[in-house]
Amino acid sequence: MASSNVSDDFLPDALRFRSPHPLVDIGANLTHDSFRHDLDAVIDRARRANVGTLILTGSDFDHSEQAAVLAEHYQGLYTTAGLHPHVADQWSDDLGRNLAALQRRPEVVAVGECGLDYNRNFSVPRDQETAFEGQLQLAAESGLPLFIHERDAGQRMREILKAWRDDITHAVIHCFTADRETLHGYLDLDLHVGLTGWLCDERRGHHLRDLVGDIPLNRLMVETDCPYLLPRNLPAKLKGRRHEPALLPWIVREIAHWRGMTEDALAYATTTTAMAFFGLKEVTTHCTDDSQHAGEA
């Protein structure tokens, strides 16, 4: 476990938030190199912000395995295990068998990050679809939920998921950024939706503010997708601009505002949904003196 004595001078006072209810960050890329030298402090700050349960993102076999090791050593950490569409050309039968074995570990709670990305096409669409179908099969066999990446591929994603929907349990479209039609298509398939700090970006996320109210509370979850997608409207600048789980309460506050509900109510609802989605029994909490958190409203 991370030490409670870890220095907390990375975040300025205005960014030391604390959620009124324990939160689950369903998408944290803590195997990213930027966390290599201060992971204990990152996890400590998350707990002080009342973000005690973190679902790490496994984007390929190596990172999935690294995340599983971290989840073994830190209370409140779990992970997904899968192959991101950017590296879908790595898919093979052997990789599928290795991922299946990894997904049997108790700290692995979802298949993914998998899906389709037709925005960048780092792997060709044919390879992306092959890898995605392979991981849908893994989810169908294991009963684990799916952690899905989709960008500029909403129609094809819905077609594939519709064909598999009766074979899989739950699925979340993580870091949702698309339009109303795509959102409602996913909701019609009984999917969950993960929202990030994209909502806080006035350049490209403004449209999401009009959509958040369309997502039922029992389908909505929250995430940082750190170290990416640092909210642009934070009340203070952050050194290095690396996003981290301790900032999730700010995202929850923003979503709650645009839904017209309290931060506490949204925090409670998204945590309840996430715990059920990933099959977790109890949320990890960390008590601390609220006076240490000047950023709390």
Rank of each mutant, 00 (worst) to 15 (best):
R219E: 03
T285F: 03
A41G: 12
Y268C: 05
E202R: 13
H84S: 04
L30F: 09
G115H: 05
D60Q: 14
V42L: 04
T182Q: 13
Q292K: 11
W164E: 06
R105C: 01
D40K: 04
A236V: 09
I173D: 00
D117E: 10
A101Q: 14
T79E: 12
E113S: 05
R242I: 01
S3C: 06
A294D: 09
E113H: 07
L211Q: 10
L70M: 14
T271F: 07
T284P: 00
L15A: 03
D94Q: 15
C287L: 15
Q75K: 14
E72R: 15
G134P: 11
Q135E: 09
S19G: 08
S34D: 11
M157D: 02
R45H: 04
T182D: 13
T271I: 05
Q137F: 10
L187T: 03
G112E: 14
R105G: 01
E244D: 01
S92A: 13
P20G: 12
W258P: 00
E244Y: 00
L230N: 03
I55W: 03
P245Y: 00
R120I: 05
N233S: 12
A163H: 13
S59Q: 11
V283F: 11
D33P: 11
G58E: 06
M221H: 09
D127P: 09
Q135R: 10
L208W: 02
D264A: 13
M157W: 11
D225P: 00
L23M: 09
S142A: 13
A81N: 04
D264F: 09
L144R: 12
F132T: 03
F10T: 01
P235D: 12
D289S: 09
